[in-house]
Structures are given as C-alpha cells and as structure tokens.
Amino acid sequence: MAIDYQRLLERRFEPIEHAYSRRDSILYALGIGLGADPLDPRQLAYVYEEGLRALPTLPVILAYPGFWAKEPDTGIDWRRLVHAEQSFELHAPLAPEGRVIGHNRITSIFDKGAEKGALLTQQREIVDTASGALLATVSQVSLLRGDGGFGGPRNGAPPAPHVVPERQPDASCDLPTLPQAALIYRLSGDTNPLHVDPTVAQGAGFTRPILHGLCTMGVACHAAMRALFDYNASCIRSMRVRFTAPVLPGDTLRTELWQDGDIVSFRTIALERRVTVLSAGRIDTQLH
C-alpha cells in the first residue's frame, strides 16, 4: 500500500495532555546517564528532588504522540522507518514538573524516489496547560525507506545539515552508557521493542537491541553541559542533530565540541567501535 501524500500531510492528531512529575524528570535524567558520579552536586541537581532542575532535552519526551506511523491509516511501511534527525527549541524555561499539551502535525513529505525513500517531517508544539504559553517546539525527520516513489513533491526537503568545523575540537567529553541504558530510558515513554527485545532487533538487522536515538541525543547534551557550561541548563536554547549509526547499550560515547560564539557544533563517536553515531550537531546557546 503506497502512502497517500495529501491524506498523510493533512492527518489529524488529537492534542495530548501530559502531566509530568519530578519523578519523571529524574527518571529521564537517569536514563541519559546523569548521576553517574553521586558526589558531583552539578549532576545531582538533575536527579535529586532538593533543588531539582529540568534538563534542556526534556521536551523530547513531553506529550509524545507515540509510534503513530504504525497505524494502518498512514500507509507507511513502518518496519523500514528510520529516525533520521531531531531538534528542539526552548521558548521558555522548563519546570521539573508541570502539565502540558502537545500539538503534533506533519509539516512536509519529500519524495526522494523509489530507491531512496521519502523524508517526513513532523513538528510538536508544547504549551503550558494553565497559561497557554508556548514552552518548546520539537521537530523530527523520519526516513521512510520503503515509501519513496509515490509521486509526491521532489522539492521542499528538510534544511541542509549543519556543517561541523574542520579544525580540532575545542573540547571533548567521554561518557559511558550502561548495558541496561535502553531498559531505563524506555520508561520515559518510548517502548519500541527494538530497544529491548533481541528477536525484534535481529529481525530489523541488528545483532542486539540498540539504544534510543533520543537517548544518544541526551547524552550528547549532557557532554556539552559538562564540558562547556558547568552543568548550567539555562545556557542551551536549541539543539539539532542527525542520527548516523546506532548505539549499543554499554558503548562509551565521545562527544567532540566546537564553540563559535553562541553556536556549539558537535559530533558523537562510539569509541569501542569507532563509529560516528551523531553528526551535524548544533546547539544554540544564550551565553550573553
């Protein structure tokens, strides 16, 4: 079944109301590796209820619409869907607990051709339930490997990837991931069996369950906070990344960082396997 371009573009998503607690914020932070040093008060600020702070990447799990591509009305070959890019922009400070509403919509579908698939971009606006204030905008690009050549537009592709400088990194940070990292992270809402069930993972072409891409993105943000911002979450305004290879739980992730004014470029490498897992990374800051 081929996708219906116009029908998919106009697909309606019901608003999702999400009440999240301090416990949820702590669980998310633990899922991306905060608290590895129990004597570091900078990390404890994100995993201890006394003076608890929200991580800047928290919006990626708020009002999450779930794996809707699997629904039969989409026509998407969901087994061949790949999470290609992710970004978020913060419009207001996030509290470690609250009630929000997520408004999700598909913003573009770009036909790369029958052999190359299609790119689908979706956007989620997260607003505060009480005030209606816009807190964050979360965007995701998915590669629909089995759905190209449906006759859709061949222009309007997502923006070109951010270019990382060619000079030596200004800083780098190595962070280990736990063998059970995916089992912890999935408790924040992404229960795709690819990340827990060996049979499902092998059916998708992997030797074992892989780590969530959004968890890897969180680890990279943690690395930037640690190496450049002394764990000050308020420095980060937005973040964008391209997923280039899967991470295996237990990998050590090295994030290389370049700082040019208010823009931080980065890439992340799985050290033991010497594989670049995140590329074209960009963090916009508000340092001044």
Rank of each mutant, 00 (worst) to 15 (best):
Y5V: 04
L9E: 04
E10I: 03
I16W: 08
S21L: 08
R23W: 11
I26R: 00
G33V: 00
D40K: 05
L44A: 05
V47G: 00
V47A: 04
E50A: 11
G75T: 09
D77A: 13
R79N: 11
R80L: 13
L81F: 10
S87K: 03
G98R: 07
T107Q: 05
F110K: 08
G113M: 11
A114I: 14
A118E: 01
L120T: 00
R124M: 09
D128F: 07
A130V: 12
G132P: 01
L135C: 09
V141E: 03
L143A: 08
R145Q: 13
D147R: 11
N155P: 01
P158E: 05
P159A: 15
H162I: 12
C173F: 03
Q180L: 10
R186Q: 13
G189Q: 00
D190V: 12
V196L: 12
G203T: 10
G203W: 11
F206I: 09
I210P: 00
I210E: 02
L211A: 14
H212S: 01
G213S: 10
L214A: 08
G218R: 00
V219K: 01
H222S: 14
A223M: 01
A224K: 06
D230E: 14
M239G: 06
R242E: 06
F243E: 06
L248R: 06
P249F: 06
Q259I: 09
D260A: 15
V264S: 01
V275G: 10
V277D: 01
A280E: 13
R282F: 00
